[in-house]
Design a protein around this nucleic acid. Sequence first.
DNA 1: AAATCATTTCGATAAGTATCGAAATGATTG
DNA 2: CAATCATTTCGATACTTATCGAAATGATTT
Lengths: 188, 188
Amino acid sequence: MSEKNDELVLFFKALADANRLKIVGLLAQHPYSGEELAALLGLKASTVSHHLSRLSQVGLVSARAEGYYSVYRLEELALQKTRLLFSHKDLVSVADGVDVDGYDRKVIADFTRPDGSLKEIPAQRKKLEAILRYVVRDFEPGNRYTEKQVNKILSRFHEDTASLRRGLVGAKLMAREGGGGEYWKLED
Amino acid sequence: MSEKNDELVLFFKALADANRLKIVGLLAQHPYSGEELAALLGLKASTVSHHLSRLSQVGLVSARAEGYYSVYRLEELALQKTRLLFSHKDLVSVADGVDVDGYDRKVIADFTRPDGSLKEIPAQRKKLEAILRYVVRDFEPGNRYTEKQVNKILSRFHEDTASLRRGLVGAKLMAREGGGGEYWKLED
DNA sequence: AAATCATTTCGATAAGTATCGAAATGATTG
DNA sequence: CAATCATTTCGATACTTATCGAAATGATTT
């Protein structure tokens, strides 16, 4: 997950420099030695060496010895790979390491007291939904509850149990049977 | 020339950061508000704003107002463009700002295919010479080649190896020893 | 082995930038 | 218009890195 992303970041960093892009463009024509590249770009040999190191680190260039020189060439294979990189599936997987419950946790932290009860019931819909997801955890799947039992559980969180109860049903986190007033938790 | 490269550098810089990549991955799933992104990534709102600014600067994300929030979405068009970015021709043009061999580069871009082979052998003398300078790079200085070896190397570029071979000798880029038919690369 | 030439490594410096907190701005609701 | 909430801007800090010069390493020739 994360290591794969690091590799991607390194790849883009390798291309995120004007002089390295020029090197790639030059090597796309034909191989060059480091000395030639330095002359063409107006840079010192040590600087070019640094750039080539970053490029070869991600497999974009490779070197072969030739006389005094090392001759560097572009690895078009690495670029081919890049073309395939931007499929929707691969893009989505870039976010793999992300903690998707982060938003809920932040809202819960903002609206709850140390004992877990609610300081207030959020007015904004998105935050209310996060809080309702938090509250509904205290109900067990499969169980059926009377309205009185529901209110008792909800009262741990806030005195306005009616609002919470209506919210849970409205958010389709719980359901109610029309007549008898029995409630149960809905699964995702 | 250079402005175009700057744009490219900015584009890669926009993607050369782990958190921005995650944002791209998340927005590839569906739009998010800045607040949600901040919670998901464990960053402060101001930091996320900075990242979104860099991403929208290169057209990768766009925003639309929705209630209190601004909702950001990925511009898949910008990514499509990226796929086309790595054609041989465009790669070669990345080195346009480099002040040497500009003419040769243009000719090479015009006459070569993505794999580096020749679409055709130029008829005009100046263009032919530029192409010959390009071709001769694949010969190593000091080496001696039989005609068969020469033809094998030249066949990477064009099936008419005889024309290329005669051109190289005529342009004094390579020399041939009269009797035995051995060839070698001439230095500038 | 000594000399020569290119490349790499190292240390230093300057520029860039990711991140935060605080303040300013913008947008929406009451 | 006042209150509320999200976003942006600003100033500061810490980390990264592009660049250079000098020294070390590697490779080739004599």
